[in-house]
Design a protein around this nucleic acid. Structure first.
Lengths: 259, 259
DNA sequence: AAAACTATTTCAATATATGAAAAACCGCAA
DNA sequence: TTGCGGTTTTTCATATATTGAAATAGTTTT
């Protein structure tokens, strides 16, 4: 049932569909937009874009009013069905809530998806100073606590594959040297958690632990994210780490028992 | 910047894009699937589907492993950006949490989207018997409390437009008679809330109130959903309604003050 | 009321998508 | 092993859908 991987992976693509999906993605970046402006941005002719948009409207992905276009929630609905299959969230949610109570910081549940991680659930702490994150947000794997901890517990070839795609520098603290990064992951694996001090976004830090299934495979990560100012060694040692470990243990146990 | 509406709205569609989106939607219905089975379901030739899938894979919407296809979280990521723009959730979340504490039932935040409503946030109550709902779920407008209350407070021509598309019968309690439905909406408008006793899904009931912006336009609805058994007149009158009214008033005030 | 936009529509040239059929691959049974 | 019934992938000639220039139409600005 499986074929040998094709040498030329670029073949057999349908251009029109690609373009339509690009339109969708471009629309996600703006509140709303007119035809000609979008045509300029995408470097695509107006009539072509006009037809693509007409199709997206007809299919329910885009709303048009007064010749302005904006996304509907349709792609989100489709995605929600996918997310829902990850039972993970149901299991994690109550544990994450307790975690937030104990630590007073915001918890995130994230999974590896392509070359990065995606936040699939979040419990926000009541704090005057908060970090701007949202459910559905994508983060780079190599410079987020949540991504690094998943990589640390993933098979080595999988890690290499991902790092081949993405060791972009975001701040001066981003670890872009491959060897150093591998060492960082090794440390995370031996300690059982990963941290990130402003490696992705300046002044934002996080600590993350892996969530393991019955076979000890990592399926997601649980993290606490906060302004770097509150990310002190004392807090990590006395508050964050114990709370995370306990939550992760409970969750991993839940997952292990699940069918 | 606005054109006169076209008489023939069906023109100018690009078939390939439509088909590709249909593939996406079909994939959302299953955990994972092989090429030939999907081709049969969609009544589309195998080579064509093969190319569409290859494109979706290349664009990151679909994952392929061992000749089995499944959706990634990409469409959800795109949708999340859209949802995020609805600041609504941030405002509503804390109020909804208190609402759930007070009522001991699950709260839903929903917006009108096309011919139905979509749940954009949910706070689940701790109850041994719960109703199966999820964030991202679509519900019909004409037979859900949340949909009816939005319709009740919407301009009449907008309501007509929606009801022209969808008065499907789901249970024996679904109101499918147009006149009766309009009367039901009128009652909801005068009372300030709508209810649904098993009109959509048997044994599931709900009560919903509108969330109004500064201009008294309805932007969403807040509801409590539960097994019909717990949906007693006494509970509605003494617990659900007061709690909902209070929450809605607070939220509408919040929205009114917002820029 | 023209000028300067934007959005639609038309249309002929052309690039693209199409499905039949063939090839390649897989799991299984004899 | 070989062959069979299923799958997926590739090729290719053909039909078709897509394309952008240019014309048309509507809107806003000057």
């Amino acid at each position: 049932m499986s074929r040998k991987p094709k040498s030329d992976g670029e073949a057999y693509l349908t251009a029109t569909l690609s373009k339509g999906l690009e339109v969708l993605e471009a629309l996600a970046e703006v509140e709303e937009i007119g035809l000609s402006e979008l045509a300029r941005r995408m470097e695509i002719s107006a009539p072509t874009l006009f037809r693509l948009l007409a199709t997206l409207v007809a299919s329910g992905y885009v709303q048009k009013s007064d010749s302005r276009y904006r996304l509907t929630l349709k792609s989100w609905e489709i995605g929600a069905k996918t997310v829902r299959r990850l039972k993970l969230r149901e299991v994690v949610r109550p544990r994450a809530e307790r975690l937030v109570e104990r630590s007073a910081e915001s918890a995130h549940l994230a999974v590896l998806q392509g070359a990065g991680v995606v936040i699939i659930d979040k419990v926000e702490a009541v704090q005057p100073v908060r970090v701007d994150t949202y459910v559905g947000q994508r983060a780079p794997a190599h410079c987020s606590a949540t991504g690094k901890v998943i990589l640390a517990f993933s098979p080595e070839d999988r890690v290499k594959e991902i790092l081949d795609q993405s060791i972009e520098r975001f701040t001066e603290r981003t670890i872009v040297d491959r060897a150093k990064l591998m060492k960082d992951l090794a440390v995370a694996r031996s300690r059982g958690y990963a941290t990130n001090r402003g490696e992705w976004r300046a002044d934002v830090s996080a600590i993350a632990v892996p969530l393991l299934d019955h076979a000890d495979a990592v399926v997601a990560s649980l993290s606490l994210t906060m302004p770097t100012q509150r990310f002190t060694d004392a807090a990590i040692k006395n508050a964050f780490l114990p709370a995370l470990k306990e939550a992760a243990a409970a969750i991993s146990a839940d997952l292990g028992r699940a069918p």
